[in-house]
Design a protein around this nucleic acid. Structure first.
Length: 386
RNA sequence: GGCCCUAUCGUCUAUCGGUUAGGACACAAGCUUUUCAAGCUUGGAAGCAGGGUUCGACUCCCUGUAGGGUCACCA
């Protein structure tokens, strides 16, 4: 996996990492994390840390970690070799914009057709003529992405490259460089992209926070739930199972079941997957999650939803008034509820406390909110019924 | 625009030539006195179009259409 630390961990990067992880673990391979920070202007340590933290939160552990910024010497030796054997050359350039160099290193493009077999898409063919003699280094000491990637894959013995479909057009030029330095060609698999509701690639510019992993972390989405949902975006197990642990994903994973078309990110389904994972948690942890959810939120109450079935508003109000007394005097709530009908008493109580038709039971809510806050909320509901 | 990729319910998807085209999310309606972010029942909802190939195409081929990706001295 090869993220670039030019921004916080992107949700798409998280999914690509997951697929790489699953594939490696499934096949007993090694999972390498390579920080692609050859762009000194845009890469920062903070973003790198954010990516590392995000992966650890997700529980995606890697076997080795590299930074391209620490491997410049290796790339430089390759650039020099390539210039010597004529597969690259120093080219005089017109300076068009700020930062442009008068001289760069270009790849001598043999301009031929490149065919490769993609594990997801089958045979793909490009004519590389249109690529021209593309730039592989700003100077012999400053290698660029394509060169660094190919050298690293070669040096690290990378056998499988699983990445987003937006990289598919980068593949032919990387293959060209491989052939020039005598590197073996890895197996490629290009994943379908994650799309927004308008079927456009999820981008930081258009979608802001929705693309950062941290956003979902803040929303109390469980890491295992996010992983589960991400796996289902563009992949299916071939069975009707939908809820998976990471280990189960590893067991069921197969690259043949990856979808070709892009998939829209649906937060509703994410929420459902998350809910299913919450149910799997021990009761104590569930309670902690609930607490985080209900502490601060005060939802608007709907007058019509407070009353249970066809109980009258008047009756419901009386029950709530009693409930308020019971809370103040610490009397037995269940005794009262049994007497007047559990639904008649407990439903409006729970609704008054949570503001939701579906929520934990009222006793749990009182425990979370505290007696004072609970009383305040019940009083609020009574006020509404006047 | 060139090149590349893609095309089944609103969404995620199953189907690998013969199915009443299945499931899940979401939605709608209902049931359940409700310690229920539960469960259950029911419902609506799909093969982009046109040509082939074939006894038979959602499935294979071609064309069109639509959508997407990519075209840096970023990655």
């Amino acid at each position: 996996m090869a993220p670039s630390p030019t921004g916080p961990l992107h949700i798409g990067t998280a999914r690509t990492t997951l697929f790489n992880y699953l594939f490696a673990r499934k096949n007993g391979g090694k999972f390498i994390l390579r920080i692609e920070d050859t762009d000194k202007e845009r890469s920062t340590k903070e973003f790198e840390q954010n990516i590392l933290d995000g992966l650890s939160w997700l529980g995606l552990s890697y076997d080795e970690l590299f930074r391209q910024s620490e491997r410049t010497d290796i790339y430089v030796s390759y650039v020099k070799k390539m210039i010597e054997n004529g597969s690259a050359f120093i080219s005089k350039e017109e300076v068009k914009k700020e930062g442009d160099r008068p001289e760069v290193v270009r790849f001598r493009n043999p301009s031929k057709k490149i065919k490769f077999n993609d594990l997801v898409r089958g045979e793909v063919e490009f004519d590389t003529t249109e690529l021209g003699d593309f730039v592989i280094a700003k100077s012999p000491e400053e290698p660029l992405y394509h060169l660094a990637v190919v050298v690293d894959d070669h040096e690290m013995g990378v056998t499988h490259v699983i990445r987003g479909e937006d990289h598919i057009s980068n593949t032919p030029r990387q293959i060209l460089i491989q052939e020039a330095i005598g590197a073996e060609r890895p197996v490629y698999a290009h994943l379908p992209l994650i799309l927004d509701s308008e079927r456009k690639k999820l981008s930081k510019r258009k979608h802001g926070e929705a693309v950062w992993l941290d956003t979902y972390k803040k929303q109390n989405i469980l890491p295992q739930a996010l992983l589960n949902y991400l796996a289902l975006l563009g992949w299916n197990p071939g069975t009707e199972q939908e809820i998976f642990s990471l280990d189960e994903l590893i067991k069921s994973f197969s690259i043949e079941k990856i979808q070709k078309g892009g998939a829209i990110f649906d937060t509703k389904k994410l929420d459902w997957v998350n809910k299913e994972h919450v149910k799997l948690l021990p009761p104590k942890e569930q309670l902690e999650l609930v607490a985080r959810d209900y502490d601060s939120t005060l939802l608007p109450l709907d007058r019509l939803k407070i009353a249970w079935k066809d109980t009258s508003i008047e009756e419901t109000k009386n029950h709530l008034l009693h409930v308020l007394n019971i809370m103040s005097n610490k009397e037995d709530m269940m005794e009262y509820a049994e007497k007047w009908g559990r639904g008649n008493v407990l439903w409006p109580l729970r609704y008054a406390l949570s503001g939701k038709e579906k929520s934990p039971d009222p006793f749990t809510l009182i425990a979370i909110l505290g007696i004072e806050e609970s009383k305040k909320r019940v009083a609020r509901a009574i006020e509404l019924l006047k």
